[in-house]
Design a protein around this nucleic acid. Structure first.
Lengths: 231, 231
DNA sequence: AGGTTAATTAACCTGATGGATAATTGATGT
DNA sequence: ACATCAATTATCCATCAGGTTAATTAACCT
């Protein structure tokens, strides 16, 4: 690559006069927009603020992303992309059923705990009725690898008799996501209503095992299932 | 645009010249503000639109509620108040442990399904980090009756050996709320990602029993010893 | 070098919107 | 009947913020 080409006369600052790097600029806008949208929502986020933080002019935002809405969509694409990448490293297939379930639960929980901005972004997108995720071809094509992994893992567990046959991969995934996301997304109202700490490390650790426990008790095969076929 | 002026000379509707009823006007503002906030969020909601729909002048909104933020807080108070009232009719104590758990699960699920605006409002308040719920003395005092009912019900169930002794009322409540709220709050992104219907009556019915199932399997005492059902 | 293109900037525009000022009008008590 | 006060209206205002127009300038290509 080209050297920095810093022919700074007196000023020795390495990052002076913004280098003209299309991809880098776009990436920086995207990252800061991600933070701002997660912080303040689609309407609350401010183009001037994003530009200021990125050290660029507002016009550049509209130059690369045509509108606020499209910028938000691009941010969503990036965020989901990262999650998708993380999910690829799960490797549930190698584990025994119970270990796999607990690993899945803890992975999901940890991911949401470590990425509250992502969780907030998803909440914001839902407030807006998912219109961006639905308008993005990229996002609609972007299949998430977890669901396949869960299906294979369940199949294996059912074969071994460790997991009851009625369990559905989507229901399981919905259950886990609900539990995991709630701990981040509804923290504030829940804590305010019940004065119950969800944010301390101890509370998180407790909730983490609790969620794994919920999941495992939900899927495990038992000598006598109380599920009936009526209805 | 705004040609809706005063061209009503002959037609005299019974609700002409707004009757001066403080409480009624406040209640109307509150109800419409509830809908608007749930629809568009704290920033998206528009005072002019609320006024127009309520058939009053915008000034009246600020006359009764001093600012948009305070109006939002008042809306929250009303919404939580309604839920609290509903919870009083639960009467879990009279039921057997398993029936009580399933009733609790179904009640909560049904409430959220029937009140998506409420769920959206809570999501919005969380996006705003719960600053309104935390700034309202009324809301902070407003204890929710469920938690007490759950505690008593769990105690009874533990006494009977039907519920395992480790189960905590708050964890249980968090679990149930997470599952129940998720079906409404994250509907859009979930459906978009997995092309999995969560909105049809059949999908809801399935999810409803699934959630009850999750809860019951989570709390019940060791299945090997206390499976007495045959059903 | 010099011209061309694309990245970047500076300044501007305008509609929307929360909120304020001040006047008006209906009910109520005496 | 009239004064009073609260409920309500009509209008205005200042600012914010998304988006635009037009100029500038750094890099790249002969």
């Amino acid at each position: 690559m080209k050297a920095e080409s810093v022919r700074k006369p007196a000023n020795e600052e390495p990052t002076k006069a913004r280098r003209r790097d299309r991809e880098k600029t776009k990436a920086e806008i995207l990252q800061i927009a991600f933070e701002e949208f997660a912080e303040s929502g689609l309407l609350g986020a401010n183009a001037d603020a994003i530009a200021a933080r990125a050290g660029i002019t507002k016009r550049l935002i509209f130059y690369y992303f045509n509108s606020k809405e499209e910028l938000f969509t691009a941010v969503l694409e990036m965020a989901y992309g990262k999650m998708r990448l993380a999910e690829e490293d799960l490797h549930l297939e190698t584990l025994e059923p119970e270990a796999a379930i607990r690993r899945l639960a803890e992975f999901t929980f940890d991911f949401h705990q470590a990425n509250p901005e992502f969780v907030r972004l998803v909440a914001i997108e839902n407030i807006h009725r998912g219109r961006h995720i639905n308008s993005s071809e990229k996002l609609k094509q972007m299949t998430r690898p977890v669901i396949g992994q869960i299906e294979r893992m369940l199949a294996k567990g059912k074969g071994l008799g460790a997991i009851r046959p009625e369990v559905d991969a989507y229901e399981l995934h919905a259950t886990l996501n609900a539990l995991s996301i709630f701990s981040v997304a509804n923290r504030h109202t829940f804590e305010a209503q019940f004065r119950w700490d969800m944010s301390s490390p101890e509370a998180k650790a407790r909730r983490r095992v609790e969620i794994a426990e919920v999941l495992w008790r939900y899927v495990r095969g038992s000598p006598r299932s109380s599920i009936t076929d009526e209805e």
